Amino acid sequence: MRHSILAGGKRIRPVLAIAACQLVGGAAAAATPVACAVEMIHTASFIHDDMPCMDDDALRRGRPSNHVVFGEATALLAGDALLALAFEHVARGSTAAGVPADRTLRAVLELGSAGGPGGIAAGQVADMQGEGDPSARLPAMKYILVHKAARLVEAAAVSGAVVGGAGDADAERVRRYAHFLGILGQVVDDVLDVTATSEQLGKTAGKDAAAGKATYPRLLGLEGARAYAGELLAKAEAELDGFDAAPGSIWLYGLSCGL
Rank of each mutant, 00 (worst) to 15 (best):
R2S: 12
E131M: 06
A75G: 14
C257K: 12
Q124R: 04
G118M: 01
A126F: 04
Y216Q: 09
R176L: 05
V38T: 06
A161L: 06
S256W: 00
G230H: 00
L201A: 08
R176S: 06
E172L: 02
I41M: 01
A97I: 13
E110Y: 00
L184T: 14
L111S: 03
L259C: 13
G8T: 05
A227H: 09
A149F: 09
S159K: 06
P100W: 09
V194I: 15
L255W: 00
D55N: 13
V108L: 09
D127T: 10
A7H: 03
R11M: 09
T32N: 05
A157M: 12
R2P: 03
A214L: 04
L181W: 13
V163D: 01
A236V: 12
V153A: 01
L105I: 15
Q186M: 07
L152V: 12
H89Q: 15
G164T: 03
E199K: 09
D56N: 08
L184V: 11
F70K: 03
A30W: 06
F70P: 11
L152G: 07
A29S: 13
A75C: 14
A126S: 07
L105V: 15
A81H: 14
V38S: 02
A31P: 07
A31D: 05
L111G: 03
R103D: 11
A17Q: 13
C257S: 12
P247R: 08
A58I: 14
E110T: 06
Q22V: 05
E223Y: 00
A140G: 14
A31R: 01
Q200C: 12
A149I: 12
H147T: 07
A73F: 05
A210R: 15
K148F: 05
G79N: 03
A97W: 04
A150T: 10
L181V: 15
A126H: 02
E154R: 04
C53E: 15
F87W: 07
A31V: 10
K235E: 15
D80G: 05
K10T: 15
C257A: 14
L201G: 08
E239Q: 15
D50E: 11
V188F: 00
T204A: 09
A171D: 14
H3G: 02
D208T: 03
G160P: 00
G71A: 01
G242I: 11
L105C: 13
P247Y: 08
R175W: 05
F243C: 04
G258K: 15
A149M: 08
A169S: 06
E39M: 11
V187Y: 00
S4Q: 12
A58E: 14
A149G: 12
E172C: 01
D49V: 11
L181A: 14
A27Y: 09
E88Y: 03
A17W: 07
I183L: 11
S249Y: 09
Y177H: 12
Q22Y: 02
H3I: 10
L240Y: 05
Y216I: 10
A122N: 09
A73W: 07
Q129D: 10
D193L: 00
